[in-house]
Design a binder for these strands. Structure first.
Lengths: 259, 259
DNA sequence: CGTGAAGTTGATATCTGTCAAGCTACGTGG
DNA sequence: CCACGTAGCTTGACAGATATCAACTTCACG
């Protein structure tokens, strides 16, 4: 899965990956899943592919607002998102919450639980969702059998580490508008890789959740949206966002070029 | 390796791990390394242990200020720190640098390179260091043979993800003094797990590097140190720090108790 | 013992947070 | 089908935390 991550831009560049999502797909097996290229390694023959179908034990539906897992839950499985949109967040006892990521179809959540066998964050569905449940013991078993799968699992974890590095850069070094610009470009880029528009998106999260992710208050998020809108860079209407000038958005956090 | 990570505190609690570091140790094999419990899984018999010695291909010395690897380098190996102290950092073309972590003996660096086969950050030695070079292909081979090693590798990567989650919480939700307090407690805790003092430490990094990690400017770091010092919570003399009142330090970022 | 890097401290500027008011959109129930 | 209520969003005024700029001090190293 040729993927390069531009730390500067906080944008992932997927190659050979432009998958239309047909919500009508019925088959349970990975081998027939149209998200396969996002979740699973490629390069298997049909026989091996069938064996790999075992990775997914079951499917699970999660209603909007419900948690797939939460802090303290026993870790048993990774989850591949089939449909829907999630946020993961950690929180302190005094109620401060930090959104650590937003995840969409084809992305894997639950990696936080491996180290202690307990989840250390909450995964909340931001819209009705369906996930593939992949018992981690099974993932490990099959990984030992299939080096390609093993490598794939390692890449997924490494990608998450690198993504978090880029979020640290955002939080530590960038200013409010730079953060929001990077965030929007990252979102639209990931959506585009899934067959959606390069320039339009509907946010699945509130201003407050965006702010929590980007380390700023909801009012600051709102102001930044308004500023971009005033400058003609984007069009915003509540959660609908249209990017009118992608280059201008890129320039906000990267005065020069962004590969 | 019983490890729990308190997100609130940004403190890792290691269990059964209090290893004095004897710089005189000569043996090359993991099986004879006194850092084994930090780097390697436990529970192997002597025969398996010998096979696992193959994980480490060579040792490599890195002089203070030199890079173990840098952004864009081809990824081949993970590195286990034997002696010395590293920082990892990412940077943008316009020169902004974000320190993403500080690593000490027994910790593993290089995980960022797995996803793209290229390193996406720099690893700089903050003091003369020696690392064990673990070719990743060999790690993967042996992981397929030894489930305990496989699990161990997964835990190391998951731990890094969880650590970065807690840094995101620091950067996104905490104020300057809270960040520094959490940072000091985390450092001293990790040093203590390696047989050093619970209350004294010598910083291996500059104020600027601390600031970069914590998302603040060096002057702000310095002021926070001075404030803690004025309040009698710590004693500071340049890079020497003595924690006089650990509870007060904990209270700064956690008004109640911190487990 | 001199020189420069690192660290400290003060004065001021700037960005983002806070508080408050009003607006918009959406869902619910009459 | 409309009215109402609420949650989410926007905007303004002001406050506060941290950044910036600058001067000075300390320490490490040659």
């Amino acid at each position: 899965m040729g993927l390069a991550l531009c730390l500067r831009c906080h944008i992932e560049f997927y190659q050979n990956m432009n998958l239309a999502i047909t919500p009508e797909s019925v088959k349970v097996a990975c081998s027939n899943c149209n998200l396969r290229e996002l979740c699973m390694p490629t390069g298997f023959n049909t026989d091996d592919m069938k064996k790999l179908d075992e990775v997914v034990a079951t499917r699970r539906r999660v209603k909007q607002g419900d948690m797939l897992f939460s802090n303290g839950d026993v870790f048993t499985s990774l989850y591949a998102i089939r449909t829907g949109f999630f946020k993961t967040c950690v929180s302190t006892e005094d109620g401060r919450e930090q959104v650590t990521g937003f995840q969409m179809a084809g992305e894997i959540i639950g990696l936080d639980g491996i180290v202690t066998d307990l989840h250390s964050c909450n995964a909340v569905a931001l819209e009705d969702a369906e996930v593939c449940v992949m018992p981690f013991a099974k993932v490990e078993d099959l990984s030992r059998e299939f080096p390609l799968l093993q490598r794939h699992v390692h890449k997924i974890m490494s990608r998450e580490i690198v993504r978090e590095n880029s979020v640290m850069m955002l939080l530590g070094n960038m200013r409010a508008e730079e953060r929001l610009a990077a965030f929007l470009l990252n979102l639209v880029q990931r959506l585009h890789a899934r067959g959606f528009s390069q320039s339009e998106l509907t946010l699945r999260m509130s201003r407050e959740e965006i702010g929590s992710y980007l380390g700023m208050k909801l009012e600051t998020v709102s102001r930044a949206f308004s500023k971009f809108s005033d400058e003609g860079i984007i069009e915003v209407k509540q959660r609908y966002v249209r990017i009118l000038n992608s280059d201008a958005l890129k320039k906000i956090f990267n005065p020069e070029t962004c590969s």
